[in-house]
Amino acid sequence: MSNIPLPPAPGSDTHVSLALADSVVSLPGGQSVDELADPAAATSWLVDHDLVPAETVLLEYCQQRLTGLRRHLREVFAAAVEDRAPESGAVDALNSALRQVPSAEMLEYTPELGFHRETAHPLTQLVEHALARISDDAAALLTGEDARLLDACQAPSCDRFFVRTHARRRWCSTRCGDRVRAARAYEKKRVSAS
């Protein structure tokens, strides 16, 4: 695993499901970055994305559930980009995560806030709640206005997804675009020198 910081792909700031799908990335030279490599890293990722409180500590089982959801997200996003049916079970996995948490907000009362509504979930269901929120975001992305803008980075060896910010965008970052342009320039120079 490499600790090379990657700029966030367009759309990952507004779609947590896209951020999760891109939390593992292949890099040139066979390197990879996995933001969920162990339970502590997975906990940090969830905390950084405001999906669990800062004092949360995940166990390996919970980390594996998060990486499992990531695998299914990557499959449904790839299917959407490639205009094909997703592999068996990928959509079911997202729906299963959605069904794990009640969607109705409970009526609460506190002296500070008075009557208010909030989604109640016990501490033991923090991961289920996070997985449901991520799955809900994926469903909204795949069926909403941004669905037609979802794309996969066209740079060789990059496997991130992103939301195109303009029609001609084909790379998830300037870094990937620069790498492709440099490779083209090198190849053109090499061919003209032969």
Rank of each mutant, 00 (worst) to 15 (best):
residue 66 L to H: 02
residue 57 V to T: 14
residue 60 E to D: 15
residue 42 A to V: 08
residue 81 V to F: 13
residue 95 N to D: 09
residue 79 A to V: 04
residue 76 V to S: 01
residue 81 V to I: 05
residue 55 E to N: 11
residue 87 E to T: 15
residue 74 R to L: 09
residue 44 S to L: 04
residue 46 L to M: 09
residue 68 G to N: 09
residue 75 E to L: 11
residue 79 A to K: 01
residue 62 C to D: 06
residue 52 V to M: 05
residue 69 L to V: 03
residue 68 G to L: 07
residue 44 S to P: 07
residue 73 L to F: 00
residue 54 A to P: 01
residue 95 N to M: 13
residue 68 G to M: 03
residue 82 E to C: 02
residue 53 P to K: 09
residue 80 A to P: 04
residue 83 D to A: 14
residue 73 L to P: 02
residue 76 V to Y: 04
residue 53 P to G: 11
residue 67 T to A: 06
residue 89 G to R: 06
residue 70 R to G: 02
residue 89 G to F: 11
residue 76 V to M: 09
residue 42 A to Q: 00
residue 89 G to E: 13
residue 74 R to A: 05
residue 55 E to H: 14
residue 85 A to Y: 06
residue 43 T to D: 02
residue 46 L to E: 06
residue 68 G to H: 07
residue 70 R to H: 11
residue 69 L to T: 06
residue 49 H to E: 05
residue 79 A to L: 10
residue 74 R to I: 09
residue 72 H to M: 12
residue 48 D to L: 10
residue 83 D to F: 11
residue 52 V to P: 09
residue 77 F to G: 07
residue 88 S to F: 15
residue 87 E to Y: 13
residue 42 A to W: 00
residue 83 D to M: 13
residue 61 Y to G: 03
residue 65 R to V: 11
residue 47 V to W: 05
residue 47 V to T: 01
residue 50 D to L: 13
residue 79 A to Q: 05
residue 45 W to L: 01
residue 73 L to Q: 07
residue 70 R to Y: 02
residue 96 S to N: 11
residue 43 T to H: 06
residue 54 A to L: 06
residue 41 A to S: 12
residue 85 A to W: 01
residue 74 R to E: 03
residue 70 R to D: 08
residue 69 L to A: 00
residue 73 L to E: 07
residue 67 T to M: 04
residue 59 L to R: 10
residue 71 R to C: 03
residue 54 A to I: 12
residue 42 A to M: 12
residue 62 C to E: 05
residue 90 A to Q: 09
residue 67 T to E: 08
residue 80 A to S: 14
residue 51 L to N: 02
residue 71 R to T: 12
residue 48 D to W: 06
residue 88 S to M: 14
residue 66 L to N: 00
residue 54 A to V: 08
residue 57 V to P: 09
residue 58 L to R: 10
residue 83 D to K: 14
residue 49 H to Q: 02
residue 78 A to W: 12
residue 82 E to Y: 11
residue 60 E to W: 10
residue 95 N to V: 14
residue 62 C to W: 00
residue 61 Y to C: 06
residue 41 A to W: 02
residue 58 L to D: 03
residue 50 D to N: 12
residue 49 H to S: 04
residue 86 P to V: 14
residue 90 A to F: 03
residue 82 E to G: 05
residue 69 L to R: 04
residue 89 G to N: 00
residue 63 Q to A: 13
residue 91 V to T: 06
residue 94 L to E: 01
residue 49 H to M: 10
residue 56 T to C: 07
residue 64 Q to C: 09
residue 91 V to D: 01
residue 72 H to G: 05
residue 96 S to A: 15
residue 41 A to D: 00
residue 55 E to D: 15
residue 87 E to V: 15
residue 83 D to E: 12
residue 91 V to C: 00
residue 47 V to D: 08
residue 86 P to I: 14
residue 95 N to L: 14
residue 59 L to W: 09
residue 96 S to I: 13
residue 85 A to H: 04
residue 67 T to F: 00
residue 62 C to P: 03
